[in-house]
Write a protein that binds this DNA or RNA. Structure first.
Length: 434
RNA sequence: GGAGGAUUCGCCUAGUGGCUUAUGGCGCACGCUUGGAAAGCGUGUUGGGGGAAACCCCUCGCGGGUUCGAAUCCCGCAUCCUCCGCCA
């Protein structure tokens, strides 16, 4: 959530942010009104409660005197008790009113998305700005053969089996087998060693989390329909290890001098992919379950923009090392998640689709998640929220798509990028199985 | 799944209904002392909200209840520990 003081002091800025996102700007006005009511109710409760406590302090000693059969004390006590009784009722009513007003304010606070960075391009999904293109797509026509798509290649190589996965789990599932499984392990090893080389702490987090963790990271808002819920136990399967990494330091006050704290989480990710019927039905581009190495940083809010660039650079380093053409885009305001103030995606070239497809994504969530999860820092005695940022290092299926399609040869074999070879026993290529 | 125990400030801890405005220690910060340090002494040290300020309110795992008044009594839940059962 954003800071209530900002909403009070500069409501126009928040309205503009909502507008650019294509979300409701009148939420701001509803919130301001709820806040007004809430503060009034809070002050009323405080006053009554103060009076009640003061009265309570008089009753105690008086009861001692009254026991000594002091008639005046008994009379006074009766008077005080009568007033205290009335006050008690009034306090309960005031407390209910305050709680109601507070819950409404809180509800609206949680409904507001993060304030976007003003430099982000304005518009919808198609209004992104291309920041950079790296590498050149191969000219398969010039090479004299028609490229196979990743599923055909994966099947030839004995690396991917979606037919049997459909039998076992249904649509949008897959087996990585043989070379496919080995490729995943190699990718993870490469990603983690790069992360460790940059000083990130590797983490294997839980993938089943409780409601506050999910809510705090911002995935129960507009993204809720894509989250798997384990109803019997009131838990959620994470769609990204970002959830477990962000919540790792929840309810903590970190030492500002020790920031940034950087982690790289490896976990399985689960996504319902609701509302994507008919999209990417072939292959493993859009699946319900996949493994991913994710970077996560808790940093000083003043450093967040620079940290965002750092995460982007590390994403690019990984893509460079698997030698596929890609571009970097600045995601438009209407396509940001509710937590993100700014988002950059890296999209790898997919030859058989003739276009770039998202493979990694990095978001600056500023203090939005930290407020919800209560992750703060102490700096010169002052306590304030940290900034959180996340970025994909390697989302397995899409990286596999990019590698298979971009490094394929006419005979159906696939050259292994140099950086991966050490993690595959020095092999240079995957060959079709007989 | 069953039975017991625990949960108070960064850590340890006192606290069985009203002088609790929560005790003491460790740690930490600042100061005094010192040639310098240690020790010693003094002061400060949970978060959050409201208010111009004085100050007020909330916060003793969480949620209810009893009461004029709850860290304290009652009920429910969560987490952790021990034992039993089951199990990778």
């Amino acid at each position: 959530m954003i800071e209530l003081k900002v909403v009070r002091a500069d409501p126009d800025r928040v309205r503009e942010s909502q507008r650019r996102r294509g979300e409701d700007p009148t939420l701001v006005d509803a919130l301001l009104q709820a806040d007004e009511v809430n503060r009034g109710a809070g002050a009323a409760f405080d006053r009554l409660r103060n009076e009640q406590k003061e009265l309570g302090r008089q009753i105690g000693p008086l009861q001692g005197k009254a026991k000594g059969a002091d008639a005046a004390a008994v009379a006074e006590l009766e008077g005080l008790m009568a007033r205290a009784k009335d006050l008690s009722d009034a306090v309960k009513v005031a407390e209910d009113e305050r709680d109601t007003a507070d819950a409404e304010t809180q509800r609206l606070m949680l409904a507001l998305s993060n304030i976007i960075e003003l430099d982000a391009p304005v518009g919808g999904e198609e209004d992104f700005v291309v920041l950079q293109e790296v590498g050149t797509p191969r000219d398969f026509a010039a090479e004299g053969f028609e490229p196979r798509d990743h599923l055909e290649l994966g099947t030839l190589l004995g690396a991917i089996d979606v037919e049997r996965a459909a039998k076992v789990s249904g649509a949008r599932f897959y087996y990585l087998i043989g070379n496919g499984a080995l490729l995943e392990f190699a990718l993870i090893n490469l990603a983690i060693s790069q992360a460790v080389a940059h000083g990130l702490t590797p983490v294997i987090p839980p993938v089943l989390v409780n409601p506050p963790a999910m809510e705090g990271t911002g995935f129960l808002g507009q993204a809720a329909e894509n989250v798997y819920r384990v109803e019997l136990d009131d838990m959620y399967l994470v769609g990204t290890s970002e959830v477990a990494l962000a919540a790792y330091h929840s309810d903590e006050i970190l030492d500002a001098a020790k920031l940034p704290l950087r982690y790289s989480g490896f976990s399985t990710c689960f996504r319902r992919e609701a509302g994507t019927y008919g999209k990417d039905t072939r292959g493993i581009i859009r699946v319900h379950q996949f493994d991913k190495v994710e970077m996560f940083s808790f940093c000083h809010p003043d450093d967040a923009v620079a940290e965002h660039q750092r995460l982007l650079a590390w994403e690019r380093e990984f893509l460079d090392s698997i030698e596929v053409p890609y571009r970097v885009i600045d995601v438009a305001s209407g396509d940001l998640g509710s937590s993100a103030a700014r988002k950059f995606d890296c999209e790898a070239w997919v030859p058989t689709q003739g276009k770039y497809r998202e493979v990694t994504s990095t978001s600056n969530c500023t203090e939005f998640q930290a407020r919800r999860l209560s992750i703060r820092m102490r700096e010169d005695g002052v306590v304030r929220p940290v900034a959180t940022l996340n970025g994909t290092l390697c989302a397995i299926p899409r990286i596999i798509v990019a590698i298979l399609e971009n490094h394929q040869q006419a005979d159906g074999s696939v050259n292994i990028p140099f950086a991966l070879r050490p993690y595959l026993g020095g092999r240079e290529k995957f060959e079709p199985i007989s």
